[in-house]
């Protein structure tokens, strides 16, 4: 991958989640694409694969992973990559993505997206591996900026510089999660506008937007609830800077009715159109100072105490089966 223009703009999509299977397959609502969590479908058969095949009859599917472990001591396992590539061939995904993170060490997989220190050593490790992953998959590969709840003393640069260095050295794409910029900015006292201005716009292949949960001292990236106004503001700023790029709504906790999700996708289209129109006029639709002020004002506001939090979204599991019968 060399330029974002080699990756198509698919429009606006949503994450494919179990509670919506029936509605999606029966109604086939007009959506530009679905994003799947790759790991949920890296199995040989059964319901997950059946439902995926039905979805592929109508929709473009993009693969997004949560377990590659690009930054851990062990690195991506060959077996994982083999299964990921096999799935990619079946879905026809135009790119594959995962996260700027690490997932465990000493043979343990923590199933979390742990933040990396922003150091030269981490840049070397992640960029070398990312290049190998992209070559192995024979598809454009992108990494997503994560939300985080701690920062390291060893970091020697801001996150946006780290993302830029890795994507440039590895020649890969950036999956820009606008909500994660907002979450991390609140949690670490960053300026979200400066963050957005610092990312390599020409590397962005896709944008994620999602809801989050304010628990008082920090914000958790729960993917729960509708996208909040300041995140829409940041999204429009991103589109004004980057241009037309595939956009995905993530909603993984307290998953609503399909129609609520579809309405959120309509909102994204509307925000995107507004930002693209402003970009065409050489203007902006966003009051950056108001975004900064809203973030500051959030401190001290009432918070939720039961956030729920399942990284990677729900999976279709055997434990939920309820149709056992004695033959």
């Amino acid at each position: 991958m060399t330029e974002r223009t080699t990756v198509p703009d698919l429009g606006v999509g949503v994450g494919l989640r179990v509670p919506h299977y029936r509605g999606v397959l029966e109604r086939r609502p007009p959506l530009d694409f679905f994003e799947i969590i790759s790991e949920n479908f890296m199995v040989p058969g059964g319901k997950p694969r059946h439902h995926l095949e039905r979805v592929l009859e109508t929709y473009r599917v993009v693969q997004h992973g949560v377990s590659l472990d690009i930054g851990g001591p062990q690195g991506p396992s060959p077996e994982y990559l083999r299964r990921l590539k096999a799935l990619a061939r079946e879905t026809g995904t135009p790119w594959v993505s995962d996260h700027f993170c690490w997932c465990g060490s000493s043979g343990v997989h923590l199933h979390d997206l742990l933040p990396l220190p922003y150091t030269e050593e981490a840049i070397r490790r992640v960029s070398e591996r990312a290049r190998v992953v992209q070559d192995t998959l024979e598809l454009p590969f992108a990494l997503e900026n994560t939300s985080s709840y701690l920062t390291y003393r060893s970091s020697s640069m801001p996150e946006w510089e780290f993302l830029t260095e890795v994507t440039e050295r590895a020649d890969i794409g950036l999956l820009l999660d606008v909500n994660n910029i907002y979450v991390s900015s609140y949690n670490h006292g960053l300026d979200p506008i400066q963050f957005l201005e610092g990312i390599p716009a020409h590397r962005v292949v896709q944008i994620h937007v999602a809801g989050h949960t304010h628990v008082g001292e920090y914000i958790i990236d729960t993917h729960r609830g509708p996208i909040l106004p300041p995140v829409w503001d940041l999204y429009r700023l991103a589109i004004e800077r980057i241009g037309s790029v595939s956009t995905l709504i993530e909603w993984d906790d307290a998953i609503p009715e399909l129609d609520v999700l579809l309405a959120e996708a309509d909102q994204a289209r509307s925000e995107r159109d507004r930002a693209l129109a402003a970009r065409a006029r050489g203007e902006t639709s966003v009051d950056a100072e108001a975004v900064r002020a809203a973030l500051c004002a959030l401190r001290g506001q009432p918070a939720v105490r039961d956030p729920g939090w399942l990284q990677g979204g729900p999976r279709e599991s055997a434990g939920k089966e309820s149709d056992h019968e004695a033959a």
Binding site: E39, S67, L68, D69, S77, C103, G104, G107, H109, R315
Partner: peptide, 9 residues
């Protein structure tokens, strides 16, 4: 038995 597989499955 700490989790070792990439998949929660």
């Amino acid at each position: 038995q700490p989790p070792a597989s990439f998949s929660l499955r």
